[in-house]
């Protein structure tokens, strides 16, 4: 079958390391002439501002997928953390309204709530041995219900300017996202934790026989995933200047899609942070360009749904090609 040159090229492309980066470039180049305002400095900033918080969530999810799990609750954790931040800091209704320490306390609360929710996921998966997707689906429902109950569906305004600045200055958000992504990348490639993560994802039984503390590492990974969602919540909340119980509700697809498009395997053991960066970038480009082309939110959702299916399909194809060799 691989004798045909076209097929061989396709196979090479499928197995290429930076397939998605090339895809991003080709996509941008192809759409730029037809899309008014696509290739501009201002639009690049828009794309980056959109992509930054999603990237942080996606990096956390990448770790979970590598260890062979899934976390569907990340976007609802973003929503709850956003609400908690608002409840603590808001000048209108915050518990620490006007207090000097409102911002640090707010940040701390957001991060600890999200890490705590990650810990609940981790316990459900490791100690209770509930399949990860159903465990995190349940926490997703519970957590988003909690966010809505806490606010009675209202948005919380009046966030302190010191906090909002985090979202207004693109370089600040960029640095937060960049540093966390870089750290995750280093952890995966240069530390014991990273090696253990891949080993568990490849073969949890073999890892456990080799003395890897499988339950502890898995638990910790869910905590990290929750914590990253909290970090993303800070960026989202500061960017939109409100604590919103429905924040990031429609981004779950972007997050799962970006990670899968980035080449992280749903079966565990394979994936890289760099792939996720490109995956996020790709979906952000798609989102932005379709918006500029005047397509509605719903059409874009449909296209993204198709894109994630295509990515999963590519992943399955890649696996098949890899096992053939």
């Amino acid at each position: 079958m691989a004798s045909l040159p076209a097929l061989r090229l396709l196979k090479r492309a499928l197995l290429a390391d930076h397939l998605v980066l090339w895809l991003c470039l080709v996509y941008s180049a192809a759409l730029a002439p037809f899309t008014p305002g696509f290739a501009s400095w201002g639009n690049l900033q828009t794309i980056l501002a959109y992509a930054m918080p999603i990237l942080v969530v996606s990096v956390g999810l990448t770790l979970v997928l590598i260890v062979g799990g899934i976390d569907l609750s990340v976007t609802s954790i973003v929503a709850l953390a956003s609400v908690v931040g608002g409840k603590v800091m808001s000048a209108d209704e915050g518990w620490l309204a006007g207090h000097a320490l409102a911002v640090p306390a707010g940040l701390l609360a957001m991060l600890s709530v999200s890490a705590g929710l990650g810990a609940i996921n981790g316990l459900a998966v490791t100690a209770c041995r509930i399949p990860p997707f159903i465990a995190t689906l349940t926490t997703m429902m519970l957590v988003s219900g909690l966010a809505i109950w806490l606010t009675l569906s209202r948005k919380i305004g009046g966030l302190p300017p010191g906090f909002v600045r985090l979202g207004q200055e693109l370089w600040l958000a960029g640095m937060t996202a960049g540093v966390t992504t870089w750290l995750a990348h280093l952890a995966l490639s240069c530390t014991l934790y990273g090696k253990w993560l891949y080993a568990i994802g490849h073969n949890a039984r073999a890892a456990s026989v080799s003395g890897v503390p499988v339950a502890r590492v898995t638990f910790f990974t869910y905590v990290v995933s929750g914590w990253f969602a909290g970090l993303a919540a800070i960026l989202f909340t500061a960017g939109l200047e409100t604590g919103n119980p429905e924040m990031a509700r429609d981004n779950l697809l972007d997050v799962v899609g970006a990670v899968v498009i980035g080449g992280t395997s749903l079966y565990g053991g394979r994936g890289r942070v760099s792939g996720t960066v490109f995956g996020v970038l790709f979906l952000a480009l798609v989102d932005n360009s379709l918006n500029l082309l005047g397509l509605t939110f719903y059409t874009i959702t449909m296209v993204k749904g198709g894109a994630i299916l295509a990515a999963a399909l590519t992943d399955a194809l890649r696996n098949r090609l890899l096992t053939q060799e």
Binding site: T191, L192, W196, Y198, N203, R270
Partner: peptide, 30 residues
């Protein structure tokens, strides 16, 4: 099923058990 991570590399498999002794710092840096 239990001896190897078949998809992982030779180096990763060989060092899987002994890794905790091959660190540069307590942070887990290899």
């Amino acid at each position: 099923a239990e001896g190897l991570c078949p998809e992982a590399s030779i180096a990763d498999n060989v060092t899987l058990v002994a890794l905790p002794r091959l660190l540069r710092s307590w942070l887990g840096w290899l």
